[in-house]
Design a protein around this nucleic acid. Structure first.
Lengths: 175, 175
DNA sequence: GTCTTTGCAAATGCTTTGCACGTCA
DNA sequence: TGACGTGCAAAGCATTTGCAAAGAC
């Protein structure tokens, strides 16, 4: 577990200045838990620092992510960030239907990583690995229901769109 | 290899109309080979059909992708499409440094897919799998060069932690 | 005091959409 | 003919950027 002090240290160690904004963004994301979008982070941070600008949150999250204090996960084409617990590497599985992100253990992924490195020379960055597909719940829903099935597993907002190949130009799954 | 006829068939079979735009977009992407961005496709298509609109290319690529005639790959937040050779499933490895996309054979990926399904119930969609990391070339470049190299960034010194952090904007090849 | 960061505002760039006209079946 | 698809123009949105003021060291 990392505390605010470590955040400051990491910043200084890389020649960056320690500002309340930077600490606040990291704290907010750590407190919120899971994968959060930039505007959610901004909203949270503004509870304590109303003047915090969205652009700052973007810049800050980007920086912290480059410093490996945060992980960046793209969900539906939108960047989300999560607190990066040191040593707890994992990949992400994002459900194309409900947009939820689930952690994937490194067990299988490490094998993949090694195999790719050995066979192709490509060095897979696990922290950035985002796999899309269908989560268990949505998969089962699809199987035995082709009728109205607006399931709302968790309290997630976001658009939930039809998964099938409907005609016309709806909006694809992810931009 | 699929020919224009099959394209038409696939469209009709799913209740869609066959238009020159749809055939042209698919042909263009097949001819160009690899992963191409929407505006590249548009440029190519316009050589023969100057009036083709960008929006049409977007709608068409989206449709063909939903019909599995094309694969959609997001590179640096920008959608790219590639011709989907029937039965030739594969994942994608995108280099974070040079933005190139490389195919990953299904060998290891299938194992991963099964393992995930078994252990977590998550059904991985291989065609959409995009892994980021460093390709062999860029990895080697980084290894023996800490002096100015193809890296456009680095306006400050970064000690410890990791290489080439700071000021993002690293991926602007085709935006 | 100097050089980095922030806030603000405006700009970007990709992608989507509303609508009227053209087109395929 | 009648519904679907396209071109055109304009809107959306997430994200970025220029710049002067504010802040860290």
């Amino acid at each position: 577990m990392q505390n605010p002090n470590d955040t400051a240290q990491s910043l200084r160690a890389t020649g960056h200045r320690v500002t309340i904004q930077r600490v606040a963004v990291l704290d907010a994301i750590r407190e919120m838990g899971g994968h959060v979008a930039v505007d959610q982070v901004a909203a949270r941070v503004r509870e304590k620092h109303p003047q915090m600008d969205l652009a700052t949150v973007y810049r800050t999250a980007g920086l912290l992510s480059r410093l490996h204090l945060l992980n960046e996960v793209s969900i539906g084409g939108v960047n989300h960030y999560e607190y990066s617990a040191p040593g707890k590497r994992h990949g992400h599985m994002v459900c194309e239907h409900c947009d939820r992100a689930i952690h994937a253990s490194t067990t299988h992924l490490d094998e993949l990583r090694e195999a790719l490195l050995r066979d192709t020379g490509f060095e897979l960055h696990l922290e950035h690995l985002t796999m899309s597909g269908l989560c268990q719940d949505c998969r089962q829903d699809e199987e035995h229901s082709h009728s109205g099935h607006t399931h709302a597993q968790t309290q997630h907002h976001e658009h939930s769109m039809s998964p099938a190949l409907d005609r016309g130009a709806g909006m694809g799954s992810q931009q």
